[in-house]
Amino acid sequence: ILPDDVPTVVRHLRLYLAEVDLLILTGGIGPTPDDITREAVSTVAGVPLVVHPEAQACLEAYYGDRMNGSRMVMARVPQGAVLIPNPISAAPGFLVARMAVFPGIPRMLSEMFGWLKPLVEGRREGRVTLYSQAPESAYAGIMQETIAGSQGVRIGSYPLLEGGYKVRIVFRSEDVKRAMASADAFTEKMRAEGMEITHRTEEGGSDEES
């Protein structure tokens, strides 16, 4: 649970997106000033908020002559977002930039959540994450060599500044064995240059301290 503060939510969304393929958010898309999720998501996605014609039509049909400016806020979504239908109140959720956004009301969430199922069924990406205190510039060459020798593996480096400097190097592949082999090669090259990997995690729950 995050506070209703756009910079705080934006910071956490960027952090989480570095780790996952799909980020699911609930709450903060109602019509009141404290509903700031849509603004934070649009900031992270790098697109403006716009009134979605289909969302507007659904809300107008649902509310009729009770439609007003406050309720129109719920038709605003990040530009390019795909609407997630809401069969209860017509106020939609939306999917944009690997972020799926739902209302926080449990009954609505339950009714709408099935929309995601076809998007995620059968998908499971292998992931290995390494942590180090080495500066990114020190291992940029090692990372480039590892990328060149790691077919089918995506590698990303993400600095973490909270609680002291460290970096997270993430290896992603549909074949977890490839991700593990790539991470092993990277670790070996790092240690050969006198740089340590302080922690390693692998998808599936196995953690090991180095």
Results as ranks from 00 to 15, higher is better:
107 R>L: 13
47 V>W: 01
145 E>P: 00
162 E>R: 05
170 V>N: 10
30 G>R: 06
94 F>M: 03
103 P>E: 10
42 S>R: 08
57 A>V: 10
165 Y>F: 14
195 M>V: 03
92 P>Q: 05
184 D>F: 03
130 L>N: 02
163 G>P: 00
165 Y>K: 05
109 L>M: 10
196 E>W: 08
146 T>M: 07
204 G>L: 12
37 T>V: 09
15 L>F: 07
102 F>V: 13
53 P>Q: 12
24 I>D: 02
72 M>W: 02
17 L>R: 13
91 A>L: 15
117 K>N: 03
173 S>I: 14
19 E>S: 13
167 V>C: 10
32 T>Y: 12
103 P>Y: 04
200 R>K: 14
110 S>V: 02
199 H>C: 09
49 L>D: 05
151 Q>P: 00
52 H>Y: 03
156 G>I: 14
19 E>M: 14
209 E>M: 11
172 R>D: 05
138 A>M: 09
168 R>K: 15
194 G>W: 01
122 G>L: 05
144 Q>M: 03
55 A>M: 12
185 A>K: 06
7 P>R: 10
149 G>D: 11
125 E>G: 11
98 R>V: 10
70 S>W: 10
156 G>N: 15
13 L>T: 00
56 Q>C: 13
30 G>T: 06
190 M>C: 05
120 V>R: 13
42 S>I: 03
36 I>E: 04
54 E>K: 14
210 S>G: 07
127 R>C: 11
151 Q>K: 04
144 Q>L: 03
27 G>R: 10
113 F>Y: 10
15 L>G: 06
167 V>F: 03
78 P>E: 07
121 E>I: 08
185 A>Q: 08
102 F>M: 07
164 G>K: 12
16 Y>E: 15
5 D>C: 14
207 D>Q: 12
100 A>C: 13
126 G>P: 06
176 V>R: 07
116 L>Y: 06
50 V>Y: 08
178 R>D: 05
166 K>P: 01
55 A>L: 11
200 R>T: 12
58 C>E: 04
138 A>D: 07
122 G>C: 11
113 F>C: 07
49 L>M: 08
41 V>M: 12
158 Y>D: 11
160 L>C: 10
98 R>L: 12
114 G>S: 06
195 M>F: 08
66 R>Q: 13
160 L>R: 11
158 Y>R: 13
16 Y>L: 15
109 L>C: 07
192 A>M: 12
33 P>D: 14
72 M>L: 15
189 K>Y: 03
102 F>G: 00
35 D>A: 13
130 L>I: 04
134 A>Q: 03
200 R>W: 05
180 M>W: 04
98 R>Y: 07
44 V>R: 01
34 D>T: 11
